[in-house]
């Protein structure tokens, strides 16, 4: 009985949130490079939403009523997107041959490594951004805007809410700006490493 109620709640959530879910899936498809292939982005997003809904309803008994339904549904979407990417990669079998020509394409610093490095600075010595030569050298390699954001974030313990308050924007917007700055920082680090390695 409880399960039936939860299933009904899940269906109700899907009905009410289909617009928001569609919007996120549209962005997922865009980032996955899966738009404009067989379908335009809008149609591809609708198709993905339909598939997510079908999967969710088929497996609604597995839905944990304590779980966040949005995260659960988007998780299904992410897995479906991943599957489509794999299908696409299988169809483009000639491309992996070229990968051998670019052995160094993987980033030298993972997301975790980069974030942990900054978190360590934030926790132990936030003023290291001004005194450590390696940090200064890295920040000098990105734009002043990016360096400013990173400095602010570290000084505020990498807390998105505090950064948002400093910047006068929403936490989501502040985090997006910080994440983009960090991604460019990592690229700069990779370039420096390539130069150092000759």
């Amino acid at each position: 009985m409880d399960q039936a109620i939860e299933a009904a709640r899940l269906r109700q959530y899907i009905e009410h949130q289909s617009g928001a879910l569609l919007s996120t899936m549209r962005y997922y498809l865009y980032r996955a490079g899966l738009s404009g292939r067989d379908l335009p982005l809008e149609a591809a997003a609708r198709d993905l939403l339909n598939e997510v809904v079908a999967e969710a309803l088929a497996h609604e008994s597995r839905y944990d009523p304590d779980a966040d339904p949005r995260a659960w549904l988007l998780g299904i979407a992410a897995n479906l997107v991943k599957r489509r990417q794999q299908d696409l990669a299988r169809r483009q079998q000639r491309e992996p041959l070229i990968r051998d020509l670019h052995p160094g394409i993987e980033a030298s610093m993972s997301d975790d490594e980069l974030f942990d490095w900054l978190a360590d600075i934030a926790e132990t010595a936030p003023d290291a951004l001004e005194t450590r030569q390696d940090v200064n050298q890295l920040l000098a390699a990105v734009s002043s805007d990016d360096a400013h954001i990173v400095r602010l974030a570290v000084m505020n313990g990498l807390d998105g809410e505090s950064l948002a308050a400093k910047l006068g924007v929403t936490p989501g917007a502040a985090r997006v700006r910080l994440h983009r700055a960090l991604i460019r920082l990592r690229q700069a680090h990779q370039q420096q490493k390539d130069i150092d390695d000759g």
Partner: peptide
């Protein structure tokens, strides 16, 4: 915050396994 950054980074790279 770390997970949020990993999410953004994964989206930029099209890494839906991490997403």
């Amino acid at each position: 915050e770390k997970q949020l950054f990993a999410y953004s980074s994964a989206l930029q790279q099209g890494d839906f396994d991490t997403v």
